[in-house]
Design a protein around this nucleic acid. Structure first.
Length: 595
RNA sequence: GGGGCGGUAGCUCAAUUGGUUAGAGUACCGGCCUGUCACGCCGGUGGUUGCGGGUUCGAGUCCCGUCCGCCUCGCCA
């Protein structure tokens, strides 16, 4: 076999005259006659044009080259020379070509079902790409994504290694725990009727590692959650997971903010600056979401007090609603220049669309500089001046309202804010807006069971000084949790953990775990906490989402080499699939038809 | 579990109101071409219209069911 001397990206005019060997796949062939054939040879790095010319090499070689087809695997020996027909500015190697003297066909390829061309893939049915993933991954774009992912992993390990973190592996076969996402489970062969669960994250193991005196832990673990996928969510995904002992919240935020900034600098040459912090309350009130996109304005205001002065039934009946978060609210934001840019069709559309989020509609009006006209103008007439003042309205603005319980109105208007920004292209696509969201509530009330549910997870500590509220007013207890948000997408979250067993026991009580259940599910943690648990905290970043940002895709499947479909299938290997009766028997399981 | 969109040649798509033998580009095969570069020109092969029923003289088109893919609500401590 001819051994290659250079990659298909390596050769430049400086190599002219050298004898080289290249190997790769036939990207395109252009045969001009029996006497002249061009091949663009592709490897992981790039493309190089090979020319077969009877003027310079034996006829047999050129004839063999004439039979080459796309995706054949070949090696070529030849001489680097300046291109006879002029440079191709589209190629990095476009100033040179390799005049072939020897051709070795390493493997003929059947006609490929899809071609690894970026320009083809853009419009290709994703199903067919996933079925033929080995061909799809040959595309330059996919190769670049895989390379980016590898570089990020390398950078991450080096960054934390330099800061004295230990990379420690945690088990995949663990046990199912209550709350959280649905577990993937694995039947035990040796213990009939018992099941392992695959980890949703290494959460408890990394806390145990802190108790075990490891002080600083890092891992890039696979995490598995058996929930329905989304464009930015897979059942199987990877985290950058870490935990630190003897730290408070600021220590973790500084470490991870520094990491994010260093990563963006390394990968994109972007200076993200000091990452600001925002409380959860502020995020919810001003942006209607706990992961605010700060690349655009359209800030939301609460106008409940003004709405109470109107006789608009939509407002007044909403204000009378009750929910765990208190009385109903009326919220509003103004769209500068919206009167001109938002059509009636669009605003009507929003009223329909908003029902997805449980709101009844989107009352709308326009500001004419003096007051309001059209839409719900006559209802807000009594509060026109105050409303203009509150929202900072100017002539030509459109104002959108939502009115409902705090939960519904807040979420609905937050989603509307994003939709309007997208529709009007108000989002600066080149911006990087990071923000730490902090001071989450410890719990939210689940109305159905009338029980507290941990907003983050039940190992999250209350903020310093808040512990007393666990006893007196859990609903107002603020946690030491934090999320890092980038351009409206949550890329990581974590918390300072509970390190005192009595506090952990109290939180288990509050979320309705009996002492017996707590012992059965988390006894190991409670025992460990009693044997000298240091104060500790940590965070996990979603590696896949990080890569999505770095390579500029909104499809998580693009950044995973072998992703799964919306129904959890792998189209290439056709998983999941049945197992033998013998396997079932060994595992003590049997399937029953669902009714 | 709910809602929406889609499935026609290897690939990307078209096919009037239900109406002749389901077309085009590309790929593939054959021929031609000595400077192309997503080469070009000429000719050709290629179809279980996702699958199963139904309505009809006649179904890619209409109806019912089902499978698959994507987006989304719920879900995702």
């Amino acid at each position: 076999m001819l051994k290659r001397t250079h990659s298909c990206q390596a050769l430049r005019p400086g190599n002219i005259g050298e004898t080289v060997v290249l190997a790769g796949w036939v990207n395109t062939y252009r045969d001009h006659s029996k006497a002249l054939v061009f091949i663009d040879l592709r490897d992981r790095e790039g493309l190089t044009q090979i020319v077969f010319d009877t003027a310079d090499v034996p006829t047999e070689v050129v004839e063999a080259a004439q039979g080459l087809r796309r995706e054949d695997v070949i090696a070529v020996r030849g001489t680097v020379r300046e291109r006879g027909g002029g440079a191709n500015p589209k190629l990095a190697t476009g100033e040179i070509e390799v005049l072939a003297s020897e051709l070795e066909i390493l493997n003929k390829a059947e006609t490929p079902p899809i071609l690894p061309d970026d320009h083809e893939a853009e419009k290709m049915n994703e199903e067919i790409r996933l079925k033929n993933r080995y061909l799809d991954l040959r595309r330059p774009k996919m190769q670049r994504i895989l390379e980016t992912r590898s570089r990020v992993a390398q950078f991450t390990r080096a960054f934390f290694h330099d800061r004295n973190f230990l990379e420690i592996e945690t088990p995949l076969l663990i046990k199912s725990t209550p709350e959280g996402a649905r577990d993937f489970v694995v039947p035990s062969r040796l213990e009939a009727g018992d099941w392992y669960a695959l980890p949703q994250s290494p959460q408890l193991f990394k806390q145990i590692l802190m108790i075990a005196g490891c002080e600083r832990y890092i891992q890039l673990p696979k995490c598995l959650r058996d929930e329905d996928p989304r464009a930015d969510r897979q059942a199987e995904f990877t985290q950058i997971d870490l935990e630190m002992s003897f730290v408070d919240r600021d220590d973790v935020l500084e470490t991870m903010g520094g990491f994010a900034a260093a990563l963006w600098q390394e990968m994109l040459g972007v200076d993200v600056g000091e990452i600001p912090r925002m409380t959860w309350r502020e995020a919810m009130e001003t942006y209607g979401i706990d992961r605010p996109d700060l690349r655009f304005g359209l800030e939301i205001s609460d106008i409940s007090d003004l709405a109470a002065k109107t006789e608009f039934g939509v407002f007044t009946s909403a204000l009378e609603k009750k929910s765990p978060m208190g009385s109903g609210v009326v919220k509003a934001f103004r769209v500068p220049g919206g009167a001109e840019r938002l059509t009636r069709k669009m605003t009507d559309g929003y009223s329909e669309w908003i029902k997805l989020f449980g709101a009844g509609g989107v009352p709308t009006t326009k500001c004419n500089g003096e007051g309001f006209e059209s839409g719900v103008a006559r209802f807000v007439e009594p509060i026109a001046d105050e409303l203009m003042e509150r929202l900072g309205c100017e002539k030509g603005d459109t104002v959108f309202f939502t009115a409902d319980t705090w939960e519904v109105a807040t979420k609905a208007i937050g989603e509307l804010r994003i939709k309007v920004a997208r529709d009007l292209e108000l989002i600066d696509e080149d911006a990087w807006k990071f923000v730490w969201v902090v001071d989450f509530p410890m719990f939210e009330l689940d109305v159905e069971s009338n029980r507290w549910v941990a907003l983050h997870h039940p190992f999250t500590a209350p903020n310093p000084g808040q512990e007393g509220l666990l006893e007196t007013d859990p609903g107002n207890c603020i946690s030491a949790g934090y999320d890092l948000v980038c351009n409206g997408s949550e890329i990581g979250g974590g918390s300072i953990r509970i390190h005192r067993p009595e506090v952990q026991q109290k939180v288990f009580d509050l979320i309705g775990l009996t002492p017996e259940e707590a012992e059965m599910k988390f006894g190991f943690l409670l025992r460990a906490l009693k044997h000298g648990a240091p104060p500790h905290g940590g965070i996990a970043f979603g590696l896949d989402r990080l890569i999505m940002h770095l390579v500029g895709t909104d499809n998580i499947r693009d950044v995973i080499a072998f992703p799964k479909t919306q129904s959890g299938g792998d189209l290439m290997i056709d998983a999941p699939g049945p197992i033998d009766d013998e396997q079932m028997k060994e595992l003590h399981v049997r399937t029953v038809p669902t009714s």
